[in-house]
Design a protein around this nucleic acid. Sequence first.
DNA 1: GGCTGTGAACCTATTCACAGCT
DNA 2: AGCTGTGAATAGGTTCACAGCC
Lengths: 204, 204
Amino acid sequence: MKYHKIPDETVRRLPIYLRGLQYLLDKSQKSVSSVELAEFLHVSATQIRKDFSYFGDFGIRGVGYNVETLIKQTREILKLGGTRGAALVGAGNLGTALLAYPGFGTYGLEIVVVFDNNSTKIGKQIDGAKIEDIGKISELKKRGIKLAIIAVPAEAAQDVADKLVAAGVNGILNFAPQFLSVPKKVKVITIDIAMELGRLPYYI
Amino acid sequence: MKYHKIPDETVRRLPIYLRGLQYLLDKSQKSVSSVELAEFLHVSATQIRKDFSYFGDFGIRGVGYNVETLIKQTREILKLGGTRGAALVGAGNLGTALLAYPGFGTYGLEIVVVFDNNSTKIGKQIDGAKIEDIGKISELKKRGIKLAIIAVPAEAAQDVADKLVAAGVNGILNFAPQFLSVPKKVKVITIDIAMELGRLPYYI
DNA sequence: GGCTGTGAACCTATTCACAGCT
DNA sequence: AGCTGTGAATAGGTTCACAGCC
């Protein structure tokens, strides 16, 4: 293995690999070849080998990859060790659905606090989390919370993002249909449902 | 304008452009240059010009693009004319949140029927839509519904997809963390929240 | 023999640089 | 003069083909 700049696309695929590997582990499968994993996940075997080769020589020639080890290594690459607390901003329909979403746990994320600006919601419990006033976002710094999920309307999203950044948050999962301006050190991943939807008719 | 194969990435960006243009129209702005639109949407001006140039000569040299006309042309490219009925499968947390999501209307989609397999939910109304038994998916053919949104657990997703395809659906927006095998003529767009989440820690 | 790891070739998409139109 | 439209150059990513190791 030599030094290579790691393609963004590779990082995007790692969680897919991880899911497939986890499934194999749950089936008690010890070892897997790139071809087998490829068929399962509908990507190419070469792609899988190249992707992992950017990070090290994880496989054994003539044999394949050890499932358990590869999971560990992939999780390490993705920095998924341990559970991280995250803040959810916006306790509307989407926010509430996200609170119940089981996928967060799998990737080591736990929503530990919810913020909303609607005074009738503040103080209430939903799914075990207490809704706090959006003005208290600044307290995230004290609590050491570095990740946040934005599930507020587009108009409010930039303002919320600014507050989160000021409170020391450095990773944001944004569900608002809005580009967020943030400092370079902060990573934003936007999931824009309407936008994905908008290109569906084109293909059919 | 000459013939060019249209990059997938271009199609992916068109809804972004559309959103920006719609915003400008709402502000009663008549004309926009590629540079102005680019700053606004945080993409490059060259990119915007090249993207639109695949479809025709929409701009006026020395002037820019007419906002209203460009919206019309973009919507036409994306085949967003008129409203299409869509079926939602899964009336859980996510499904319920999607029912209330305002973005669908913008892109000409209207959820006209909801399916679930939970007998306690069947027959109930949520957000103006009646929940029907998942066994009735086959009736979509009669009703001419061609688009569907899958918001069920991963284990059930492939089965639901098969049923939808059998009922003549040719476009699926899939929220289940699962690759769906469908015939080539059917377009699937998957939005996998956990997967996006899984690569966030890597970048921070 | 079988499967990984990887340089080289290929393909796709973005950016540059400027010709062409208003 | 100003801004679009586009061939050419560049960058980014995937696939091929095979050497290297178990």
